[in-house]
Nucleic acid binder design. Structure first.
Length: 627
RNA sequence: GCCGCCAUAGCUCAGUCGGUAGAGCAUAUCUUUCGUAAAGAUAAGGUCCUCGGUUCAAAUCCGAGUGGCGGCUCCA
């Protein structure tokens, strides 16, 4: 057998939605892995019982259960049919069928797959044989047999009869390629005990409660209109406050780190993107061009120009860099812009704010000499850490994304360029002791990148932001600076976007905070609730004092009862409630109730103002008790 | 783009067998001014996503389109 574990019925895919169990970890051979792996077989067995015409694809364990892909030949089951399959699975489990392993040479293995009429297994044997595999194992239980590496439990009676749940059905391409047939994938959750399954389902339910699409609607942060177009978010006043606060923070941080702000238009002539190589590489992902025709006096078209909505800010920034000769003394030159870009993402990929067609990027390009790259990278890692600490985001890791061996043509530029860039990235990470892992084939077309991978509520990883080294852009645009010896030299470019896009970053924050934003970036910072009508004047006074200081405070002047006012402001997750009644008015005080915290505090209104302003100035985040 | 599911009031949803629609919340008006998670009454609110088909009759059945959701593929 080969040293690297072969996964006969485990699909190789890198999709980040259904995370496969790590095959190389110690978990690999453990009990849960065997249970999930064996349940996948039992699932396929049940499917064949109900759908004899079905053909089996891959069926690997995943982070929370397993899936199995089937070709149902035109008659796939629906989700309402899943309970019936579960019942059959339980019957197979009750039958305590032993799993037996058979090892076969290629000809026998192919004969067996043919006898089982499992054409996808035949293909898999052939694929593995082409890679040098000579020995193939099958696992049999009862009437069922499947090409599989194992391991499995001893018999089906060891499988938990209730701690699994056939969850949902989705399409998935054979071998993960869109050129292949779309199979039907049955997803399942599976655990060792009923309690673990219940806990998993409960956590998933909680995550759904915090879904940014749901909270975005409830808290009136953003909306979509079919009249405007799919994937084109409309930011409502509340959501726009969050954007503005984040943007203000980025401006302050970037100013401290020596960035200069620039602004560029939303449309650009095609030439710019031809030069940058974006147009050849990403034409399919760009909105089609606007064509401006030149006409002669007789109305005949004499020529035309194409304009594109910009999918990236970088080429514009390069043109700003190039508008006059640059001295080495000016480097690193850091040009920053919260730039709005438009990308024609595939319609099926659009997802709330997470994947959109118009996005506003916390973009900057740093032009510098090659010997400055390492130091700048250290600064960047420091800045990233500061940003994420402020937002209270801790669950992230760095991924060094490199070229892959497959589709080399995607990656432009010389090998020497790539090696230099990769070496610099690796060295800085090691010298600064930032733990990281590598993602082969995840690089940008112009260079390797450092991706920041955040875990969302369901434990799935999403790339939130990146740092990229680019030796290609300076070549494409013939960018230079004047070196101390008076000669022109090529700068290097670093692309970076620590706060990602407003769309993606805020969707993360909504879910991470469960909609309860810290005071500094909350749409409404202080809700003022008068206990009775005759303290309304006092409430108004407090309100205008706060508003004059730039605090977003509002008196709840609705006709609601006092209790209802408390309730409705809590539902909106307003971080600070001020309760004002006779007691407070007579002593110039306020009663301060914070969202998500037990108890409340009565204090002089001047003291409250000071403490609140300090909290906002420092961009503090108090962690609510319930999160 | 591909596979599957879904679309009823601003929101969340009910609507049986085909006989042109209901609830709660929200909104408006009136009464109530209340000390920590829902005061009371009344009113208004609908192209049952759109278009086409079947039918005496369509929210309901069929087809197409649009939009959303769960995945796959893609992601500068």
């Amino acid at each position: 057998m080969r040293a690297e574990p072969v996964h006969f019925n485990g699909a190789r895919h890198t999709g980040n939605r259904s995370v496969l169990m790590n095959q190389n970890s110690q978990e690999t051979k453990d009990r849960l892995y065997r249970i999930r792996h064996s349940l996948a077989h039992v699932c396929a067995q049940a499917v064949l019982e109900h759908y004899p015409q079905a053909r089996l694809g891959f069926g690997p364990p995943t982070e929370d259960g397993f899936y199995y892909d089937f070709d149902f030949n035109g008659a796939p089951p629906q989700e309402k049919d899943l309970p019936r399959l579960e019942e059959t699975m339980r019957r197979i489990i009750a039958a305590r069928q032993p799993f037996t392993r058979t090892e076969l040479q290629a000809p026998e293995a192919l004969a067996k797959a043919a006898a089982l009429r499992q054409n996808y297994k035949t293909l898999q044997i052939e694929n593995l044989r082409a890679k040098g595999e000579t020995c193939f194992s099958f696992y049999d239980n009862g009437p069922f047999s499947d090409l599989c590496e194992g391991p499995h439990v001893a018999h089906t009676g060891e499988l938990p009869a209730k701690a699994f749940h056939l969850d949902h059905i989705a399409g998935a391409y054979w071998l993960g390629s869109e050129r292949n047939k779309m199979l039907t994938r049955i997803y399942a959750c599976a655990f060792e005990s009923d309690a673990e399954l219940a806990e998993h389902l409960r956590r998933r339910e909680l995550a759904r409660e915090r879904d940014h699409k749901k909270l975005g609607k409830e808290l009136e942060l953003f909306t979509f209109s079919p009249m405007v177009g799919k994937g084109l978010p409309l930011w409502l006043p509340n959501g726009c406050v969050i954007r503005d606060c984040i943007e203000q923070y980025a401006r302050e941080m970037e100013f401290r780190y020596g960035y200069q702000r620039v602004a560029t238009p939303h449309i650009t002539r095609a030439e710019l993107y031809v030069r940058s190589q974006h147009l050849p590489a990403y034409k399919e992902s760009m909105f089609p061009p606007m064509v401006i025709e030149d006409r002669g006096e007789d109305g005949v078209v004499t020529g035309s120009e194409e304009y594109y909505l910009k999918p990236m800010n970088c080429p514009h920034h390069h043109m700003i860099y190039a508008h006059r000769p640059v001295s080495y003394r000016e480097l690193p030159m850091r040009l920053a812009e919260y730039g709005t870009c438009y990308r024609f993402e595939q319609s099926g990929e659009l997802n709330g704010l997470l994947r959109v067609r118009s996005l506003c990027m916390n973009d900057a390009h740093i032009y510098l000499a090659e010997d400055q790259v390492k130091e700048e990278f250290r600064l960047l890692l420091k800045m990233y850490g500061e940003f994420y600490a402020t937002f209270g985001l801790k669950d992230y890791r760095y991924r060094l994304s490199l070229r892959g061996t497959e589709n080399r043509e995607k990656f432009r530029g010389s090998d020497e360029m790539w090696d230099r860039a990769e070496r610099i990235l690796r060295e800085v990470l090691e010298e600064t002791a930032h733990p990281f892992d590598t993602g082969i084939g995840e690089a940008a077309f112009y260079g390797p990148k450092l991706d920041v991978q955040f875990k969302n509520l369901l434990g799935r990883e999403e790339t939130v932001s990146t740092i990229q080294i680019d030796f290609l852009g300076p070549e494409n645009f013939d960018l230079n600076y004047t070196a101390p010896d008076g000669q022109p030299k090529r700068p290097v470019i670093i692309h970076r976007a620590p706060l990602s896009t407003h769309e993606r970053f805020i969707s993360f924050l909504i879910e991470a905070y469960g909609g309860a934003f810290p005071t500094w970036c909350a749409p409404l910072q202080v809700a003022i609730i008068p206990v009775r009508e005759d303290v309304l004047g006092y409430a108004r006074g407090i309100e205008s004092e706060l508003r004059n200081l730039g605090v977003r405070a509002e008196v709840d002047t609705s006709q609601n009862s006092f209790n209802k006012k408390i309730r409705s402001n809590l539902k909106l997750k307003i971080p600070n409630l001020l309760i004002l009644g006779d007691k407070e008015r007579d002593s110039g005080a306020v009663t301060w109730r914070r969202y998500g915290e037990e108890g409340q505090e009565q204090l002089a209104s001047a003291t409250f103002r000071e403490r609140l302003l300090e909290e906002i100035r420092a961009r503090q985040r108090r962690v609510p008790a319930n999160s």
